[in-house]
């Protein structure tokens, strides 16, 4: 399968602060990759570089396909209804109806973001990417603020959507269980300046072993030498 995203020797600094150090990995079409690491290690920065919000100070990042970004706080425009937010970059009415059905928000299409739940807002954020015809979706801790049951429901929805649409997803999270549940591969980042500690292929039958491995990697990295 073709590579949708190639990151080669990417480093990022903000002034004197080096955030990312020599990051290299690739993501194939229809892969679901999670990026995990300690808080503040640069996961969001890496995602922003891939999206193109900012440019890396060194190295090379190339993406194929149309990128969509799902933000940590959904970032729906408060002055637009759910439907208007989703269709902002797509004017095909029929397709919007289908997308609203797909994300389970058709009954709430005329509601404003302030009138719906956090889980619905996140689904609307995903719907917005689908309406934009994104085949590569970057997700920055999208379910962090949801309660456990809502999180499970939205995760299930995302998994079904990923399989149905053949999407390529990079998913940033600090929740190891979530990473194992959703993805086929986990990239473990170190503390600042972030390097890749390991890229782990996920075997869901060995989730406990993988979880321990990830925890050990992060723990060993954070222990003072």
């Amino acid at each position: 399968m073709a590579n949708k995203i190639i990151v080669k020797n990417a480093s990022m600094s903000f002034g004197k602060l080096k955030v990312l150090d020599n990051i290299s990995f690739s993501v194939k079409e229809n892969e679901f990759i999670s990026i995990i690491g300690p808080s503040g290690c640069g996961k969001t920065t890496l995602l922003h570089l891939i999206q193109g919000f900012t440019k890396q100070t060194k190295g090379f990042i190339k993406t194929h396909g149309k990128k969509g970004f799902v933000f940590q706080d959904h970032n729906l425009f408060p002055w637009k209804t759910i439907q208007e937010n989703i269709e902002i970059r797509n004017n095909t009415k029929q397709k919007i109806d289908v997308i609203l059905e797909n994300v389970g928000l058709k009954p709430f299409s005329d509601y404003y973001p302030s009138q719906v739940s956090e889980g619905m807002k996140q689904r609307a954020g995903i719907g917005r990417c689908l309406a934009y015809n994104s085949d590569v979706i970057l997700m920055d801790e999208p379910f962090g603020s949801l309660d456990y049951l809502t999180k499970l429901k939205v995760q299930e929805f995302l998994t079904k959507l990923w399989k149905k649409k053949g999407l390529t997803i990079i998913f940033v999270t600090h929740d190891i269980d979530e990473a194992i549940r959703l993805s086929g591969k986990i990239i473990v980042l170190s503390k600042l300046p972030a390097k890749i500690l390991k890229i782990i292929d996920v075997d869901k039958s060995k989730s406990n072993i993988i979880k321990k491995e990830v925890l050990d990697l992060i723990q060993n990295d954070s222990d003072p030498k």
């Binding site: 999206q51 919000f53 970004f69 706080d73 970032n75 902002i88 970059r89 917005r128």
Partner: peptide, 12 residues
């Protein structure tokens, strides 16, 4: 700034 980022991500 988050709304400006959304606009950028959607190429508005």
């Amino acid at each position: 700034n988050k709304y400006l980022l959304v606009a950028k991500s959607l190429n508005i």
